[in-house]
Write a protein that binds this DNA or RNA. Structure first.
Lengths: 220, 220
DNA sequence: CGGCTAATGTAATCACCGGTACGTTCACAT
DNA sequence: ATGTGAACGTACCGGTGATTACATTAGCCG
């Protein structure tokens, strides 16, 4: 957060700046690793204000988490399936999700961090559940259409597809460092981006258009 | 670490116990979140011994990380492709990897933690790189055989396949909590295990047997 | 046995870090 | 213009947590 507007006494702005910087710091260091002093020092205000606006480190983290989750629009929202052929729509969704994840690495890291803490904080943020609902609804509509047309297998539901796509995209960002070290491939190398994006598109398209491996719907 | 052998003065045992407990605690709380006192209290020795054997919290974590990585045998090692049809071999590898990840959640969590720290610790453990080499080699052999037989597409390399499989399996364990909360599906629910295992098998089998989406090898 | 070192226990130290007491100043309403 | 509360700053506190100084004992080797 470098200086921008040098106004004095602007509650909204101070609060927003703290939240933005806290997001960066928590994402960079984890909850326990983040330092309240560090967050304060990176703003043009002081530690006192963190407690004035948020009350505690924990509540600040909760605010960061909620803000991050609300700020993320599921890639599904940018998908306008229109009358795209279902398979093309899903491929497009996969590739959108890929780009979406790559450009929101702080969010991805916060999710990792939250899982390290067994989801103990997000579990207090009940209102988030609804956000992803309609995103899944969009995907579900596409799959239904594909099944009707007989071009998409019937033993897979929207959540399964979402899981496969998210896993792949998430991994690229979340495990960049260990994977890069062990295999000498920087997953986020711009030169590989098209290759990696195409892969997840190919994967879901091939998967969904294949015949069910066992007759009849199996999803529970 | 509950009591087992009540011998006194056993260096090997003390060291091993510390390492095992430290693995649990680091995996449970992250590096910064883990407490040296906590680790010591869970053993039948004292904090002093951590410093006697490992020197510092950081070196203890490094030892945990290295031990965990060495202790993990890539699922590829349990794959004996023999003369299985290539596609079946890859499907089998995917399903093996799935079970493998599910039964090593502490390791998965350590990997997540290490990535939160930008891989700064694993980058000091240069010797690990070799471990995964021959694992990839096995997969590479299967793919090569499949390409020769014309049953596996030629625009995908072993690392790509490994990435797709690992991503899916890793996500299940690593993001269990946030995903479970947001979508009301416990990814590790035993009742879903067969369903989820089958999915990754279907995914790679369908993907690899499909025709390349663009003519000619594209992998870099 | 005597002694010598590896191994262990106890009790501190010291920095760091989340949180707060207290005082000040801005800006808006009247 | 000025009273008033919201917004902010400074300096500090108290606990915690990593690390260590020092004392002790166990076991082996001769």
């Amino acid at each position: 957060m470098t200086d921008t507007t040098p106004r004095r006494r602007d509650a909204e702005r101070t609060r927003a700046e703290l939240l933005a910087v806290a997001t960066e710091v928590f994402a960079a260091s984890g909850y326990a690793g983040a330092r309240v002093d560090d967050i304060a020092d990176r703003t043009r205000t002081t530690k006192r204000m963190i407690y004035y606006y948020f009350g505690s480190k924990e509540k600040l983290y909760l605010a960061v988490l909620e803000h991050a989750y609300r700020g993320i629009r599921a890639a599904e929202h940018d998908l306008h399936p229109g009358d795209l052929p279902p398979l093309e729509a899903v491929r497009r969704l996969a590739e959108l999700t890929y780009d979406h994840h790559l450009s929101h690495s702080d969010f991805i890291r916060l999710v990792s961090i939250e899982n390290i803490h067994h989801g103990q904080y997000i579990s207090r943020l009940g209102s988030l559940r609804e956000i992803n609902r309609d995103a899944l609804g969009i995907l579900d509509g596409v799959l239904a259409r594909g099944r009707e047309q007989g071009v998409i297998r019937d033993d897979v539901d929207a959540l399964d597809v979402h899981l496969v796509i998210s896993s792949y995209c998430f991994f690229q960002v979340a495990n960049r460092h260990t994977f890069g070290h062990l295999f000498d491939r920087d997953l986020l190398d711009p030169a590989l981006r098209d290759h990696h994006r195409r892969i997840i598109g190919d994967v879901v398209a091939a998967w969904l258009s294949a015949a069910p491996s066992v007759p009849g719907p199996a999803a529970s």
